[in-house]
Write a protein that binds this DNA or RNA. Sequence first.
DNA 1: TTTATATATAACTATTATGTTATGGAACAT
DNA 2: ATGTTCCATAACATAATAGTTATATATAAA
Lengths: 117, 117
Amino acid sequence: MNASANLDAVFAALADPTRRAILSRLAEGQASVNEIAAPFEISQPAVSRHLKVLERAGLIERGVDEQRRPARLKAENMAAAVDWLAEFRAFWGASFDQLDDVLAQMKQAEAKDAGHD
Amino acid sequence: MNASANLDAVFAALADPTRRAILSRLAEGQASVNEIAAPFEISQPAVSRHLKVLERAGLIERGVDEQRRPARLKAENMAAAVDWLAEFRAFWGASFDQLDDVLAQMKQAEAKDAGHD
DNA sequence: TTTATATATAACTATTATGTTATGGAACAT
DNA sequence: ATGTTCCATAACATAATAGTTATATATAAA
């Protein structure tokens, strides 16, 4: 609901390398918990909890497939994060005039939940 | 040094609303610790520690001005964060074909430290 | 030299995060 | 019915985070 609290959750979720790796994995397609956990050395419950963090941040969605609870990417909140970071594009050292256009499109496309911090 | 560890620090730093507000403040120009602390209800030591977190994440630099240690924005690592997030632009729901061009420019502009993740 | 200002650090507390192992429960297979 | 697979949750240990107050340090001013 609160945009700032949402950004808290999104950035906090992205701060963990395991969770970023999970998101990269999900960019290739949805996957079950065991499929997601396979490449990591941590336990399955630990992965389940990472998935819960990602879900609370709105970065993934869960589904139902027999016993499985596949996770799939839901990247809109990444756009919100980029949107916040875009405030600082003038400080990135390069010329990002075009980015303004892109962000304008983004705001239009996201006209669903407008307000942002 | 390590790009992934760097992203850990950057995203973790961005996960706190006080720190995001500090960065927004610094986008208007460098400021001393007391100037930065003024709008907040937390103590000065707390602000000093937030600044240390931002500095370790490479998001600010400190200067010297008599007794003051002014902080100023250093946004390159924000670009690194956006760069990572850009992997997922295809999932943002809109068409961001132009973003590819922007990112290409970004990579060129950042030809200083190339490797990411 | 003493005092004031600006900031950092130390010591402490409370909360949150991340991992573990053990176990529970749902859905499927036999 | 029983076992197997898949996942979640409970209970716990440890570490990191974020805040506090008290104090130290550096520079400037009187």
